[in-house]
Simulated assay, not measured.
Amino acid sequence: MDALIAQFTAVTGSSTKDARKYLTKYKRLDLAVDAFYNSPPTPAPQASTSKLNALFDKYKDADGEDITVDGTIKLCEDLGVDPEDVVLLAVAYELKSPSMGQWQRKGWVDGWKSADTIEAMRTTLQKLREQLATDTDYFRHVYNYTFEFSRPSGQRSLGLDMAQGFWALLIPHGLQGGALSHVASPSAPDEDGDAPMDGSTGPEEGWKEEYTQWWFEFLEQSGIKGVSKDVWQMFLEFVRTIDSKFEKYDVEAAWPSTIDDFVEYAKNRLAGNA
């Protein structure tokens, strides 16, 4: 699906979201492209800049230019969403939040796009939550942005507790919705060109939900204090591609050493040695 989406967007210039919608409905790339041009998606109505500015003024600090923690808490109350809800990471990406709990006027006005009332914003949150759960490319964008906007100013890494908190929100959401669907490693056919006789009876299994907790326990036991950008970004690819038994991990690939060590840790746990 990812390859088809890339081709669809290259041909049509559409968004990933629209590409996925047309391809899911029409199955074939040529049919989906024809349908896109014959029945293009209806543009969403543009939000009122004046209404968005008025809402921004409602929540921003009285003596400052931005919405900060107090305004964010009030906004969440009005939206009926928990401040620690995973969907707010998607909102942070859309509104280009410079740091946690902070929103700037330009990002606010540009980011809400078609939502200029609290009711419309609630609807947008539902759409973002679904997109974050199901759209692999969108998940990756939000995931990578999370590291950038949550990293303390002047520091190159993210504190372990904070990284674990975000992983605990993002990874289950992507696994359950399909954004982190397993990308199986290709198996070489045997000499007759048939599928390999490895005893497998179905699709290759990937990352399991309990492995996220294993990852946390491994990091804590390792005494790691912070998570680098490289580890953060590569961990996402690792989750999507590793098989459930960690047998197809390529130790010669350019994985961070932290992930190398985790694979050994996980194999030991599977073998009952940890």
Rank of each mutant, 00 (worst) to 15 (best):
A163H: 09
D30C: 11
A35D: 08
D243W: 08
K106E: 14
D78S: 07
A92D: 02
L160W: 10
S181T: 04
V231S: 06
A271G: 02
W207G: 01
F262A: 00
L75H: 03
T24G: 15
D116R: 08
G226S: 11
R105H: 11
I171F: 05
S153N: 06
A274P: 00
V227D: 06
T12C: 07
R240G: 00
W108M: 09
P203Q: 13
V33I: 15
T16M: 01
H173R: 02
D250L: 07
Q213N: 12
D192A: 07
S150D: 04
A54S: 14
D192L: 14
S97E: 01
A195Y: 15
F216D: 08
W103D: 00
A168V: 02
F8M: 05
W167C: 04
Y211D: 13
F246Q: 06
W112P: 06
S222P: 02
D57A: 10
E252G: 03
T136P: 03
R122Y: 01
A271R: 10
F262D: 01
E84K: 12
S181E: 02
T241K: 14
Y211R: 09
K60V: 04
G206S: 09
S114V: 00
A179Q: 05
K21E: 12
K58M: 03
D34Q: 15
T12E: 10
P98T: 08
E77H: 14
A163S: 10
D57L: 14
V11H: 14
G178F: 04
P40F: 03
G165E: 12
V109H: 13
T117V: 10
W103A: 12
P40T: 05
E217Q: 14
M100R: 07
V142D: 03
I259E: 00
A133I: 02
G223W: 11
V251A: 11
T123C: 02
S15P: 07
A32D: 05
G202D: 13
D194M: 15
S99G: 09
S181R: 05
E94Y: 02
F8S: 06
Y145H: 13
P40R: 08
A54C: 04
E119D: 13
W108P: 01
S187R: 15
K21L: 12
D260K: 05
M197D: 12
S150I: 04
F56K: 07
D110N: 12
D110S: 14
